Computed example of a mutant assay.
Amino acid sequence: MIQSSLTHRLKDQHRAITPIIIKLNDRQIQHHHIKGKWSIHEHIAHLAKYQPVFIDRIRKILLMDDPEFEAYRAEDDDGFEIYCAFTTYELLKKISSDREVIYNLVTKLSPDKLDRTGIHSKYGKLNILDWTEFFLLHEAHHLFAIFQLTHTLK
């Protein structure tokens, strides 16, 4: 069974980005506050790029028995640079549309489907609810990083 906390975060957590960055201009969003660390824009690009990866992983878990997945690293994904080339506005639209897919995919699964598992290279065997929690906590980490960068710029 899906906890209401999980469904609420799955539906709305990503919406925190806009209020956090609303007063920033593009230069501030693109700014690398610390050399070698991501800008706010790159954090948002990462969140946008990871959502299709997550959708693919859930679909594989539903189709295969215990598929194995390496830990995702944006630096190893050629598509990450493509996403970085989008405007922040375009990325936010992508996040919203892909989140609707994720929400509908996960929340409409029967209990037996939610119990299906995939194997993460670091965290081991996770069922779909665990994968979803992991996805949301990962996203929250980046939301916090965006918040920190936003307030470091002021």
Rank of each mutant, 00 (worst) to 15 (best):
P111I: 00
E75F: 01
D130F: 03
G36T: 02
I119V: 09
A74D: 12
R15Q: 08
L91I: 01
H43G: 00
R59C: 09
M1W: 07
L126G: 06
A45L: 05
I34D: 05
I44K: 02
I119N: 07
F147D: 15
K23Y: 08
Q3M: 10
E70M: 04
H151I: 00
F86T: 00
H120M: 14
I34G: 01
H8P: 01
S97F: 03
L10C: 11
V106C: 10
T117F: 08
T7Q: 15
M1H: 12
D112A: 11
I58A: 08
K154Q: 09
S110M: 13
P52E: 04
D115I: 13
F134Q: 06
S4K: 12
H46M: 03
R73N: 09
S39V: 02
K125Y: 06
E68K: 06
H142T: 10
S110T: 14
H33F: 14
D130A: 05
Q13H: 01
K35Q: 07
S110H: 14
H151E: 13
L92T: 03
T7W: 05
A71N: 12
I61T: 02
F54T: 09
L126D: 12
K154L: 07
Y72D: 05
I20S: 08
L153E: 13
D77S: 07
E42H: 02
A85Y: 06
Y72Q: 03
A48E: 09
G124K: 07
L62S: 04
V53R: 13
E68H: 07
I22F: 02
H8V: 09
C84S: 02
H141Q: 15
G36W: 01
N127F: 09
I29R: 08
L91R: 00
E133K: 04
Y103A: 11
I34K: 04
R15E: 04
D130W: 01
I22N: 02
